[in-house]
Design a protein around this nucleic acid. Sequence first.
DNA 1: GCTCATTTCAAACAGGCGTTTCAATCAGTT
DNA 2: AACTGATTGAAACGCCTGTTTGAAATGAGC
Lengths: 220, 220
Amino acid sequence: MRAGETTASEDPKERILSAAGEVFAERGYEAATVRDICLAAGVNVAAVNYYFGDKQKLYNETVRQAHQRLVAQVPLSPWPEGTPARAKLRDFIGNVLERMLGFGRPRWQTRLMLREVLQPTDACRDLVEGYIHPQFQLLLSILGELADGQLEEPQLRQLAMSIIGQMFIYRAAGDVVGMLVPADEMASLHTPVPLADHITHSALAALGLAPPLTSSEPRA
Amino acid sequence: MRAGETTASEDPKERILSAAGEVFAERGYEAATVRDICLAAGVNVAAVNYYFGDKQKLYNETVRQAHQRLVAQVPLSPWPEGTPARAKLRDFIGNVLERMLGFGRPRWQTRLMLREVLQPTDACRDLVEGYIHPQFQLLLSILGELADGQLEEPQLRQLAMSIIGQMFIYRAAGDVVGMLVPADEMASLHTPVPLADHITHSALAALGLAPPLTSSEPRA
DNA sequence: GCTCATTTCAAACAGGCGTTTCAATCAGTT
DNA sequence: AACTGATTGAAACGCCTGTTTGAAATGAGC
């Protein structure tokens, strides 16, 4: 099949996938053009159809790959046995926020996922089943541990969705959030670490497991 | 200028705006075609350029009108003096959710706004200044009243964003939420009224103004 | 009934789109 | 060196896009 591939960035298929990720994430499926992707990848226009068949198949493959790389970054069993549930909650929220908002990995990966969440296509089902649903279940189990049998599953799901929503808005509507919050405050309070503290504290306080937000000194 | 307009739905300009709202909301700016809009409006393709100049100006006008109609539906001073702050909070959350998720008004109006929030264009600034920011300030004032001076402005803004996030996710990611929550539970718990109760109760509990969620009987 | 500005219509326009073509190039084998 | 199958490249193909055109239809004022 393949003839001579040297490094990953020399393989045209890789280069196209990477360029397509950026362009699709930035402009969306319709507005992204095959010509732009090929220009960014430094390959001929015909390469997309040669390697992937057509634009739609390239898109599906791009989403699939971004999704799988994202999954690979998430540790399967993050905590040693005996870790307190509230520590797990803080870790979970911090990790999700870091993955959503952090500047580490290429931004387009999560941005592409976000597009699928906002307006699902065929590629969305795999994303939910392979990535989002397991994370949701993990959060549910943490909350179940915290509630210690005092909340039913439906209430746990409501609470879980509340927590996810508080993180989600920063990723999905970050621009508007930036218009509502002063710039300096945006940089100091609405970033992964302080946000994770705030959201965790809110959830624990709502569960009666931490002092209310109005108390000036939250416990560590 | 105008020759003979009878009813609102007979005026071609109205019909185009209405059809454009649906199509733009459904497919987005790029994927929506002028021909589809005109077909839906029952007018000739040339009508868009005749009445609005070009596609971009039609889009701007569509967003502007949807935004203004939305604003017109929101009462300016909703509560009589002396209304308890927690009642205001419940009302506010309930109203926003009803406007976001309710089946009353044409769905495309809020969906179009949502598109602007997720990926702002020129039309977004007006939307934020004329609609979102005032609502945000209203929520801030309610929370300030509730906190009774025990929280600083930055903390109030964090809390406000948390509340908005919990509502926002249902509008922006409703499809995925529906994949994570059983269908019957979706219909019973994740609808405007029970959701408003849950979010209000969570916020009050986090502020120490209501019993924790784990307590089986929340106060009315 | 005529005038005249406004509005409608079918047809066409230029440009960009995804895709295809086919000759040129390349790498590996004989 | 010649053959072979995989890859690349420039150009072209239809098709669909937003937009324009110019003539036909419309309707109010006289």
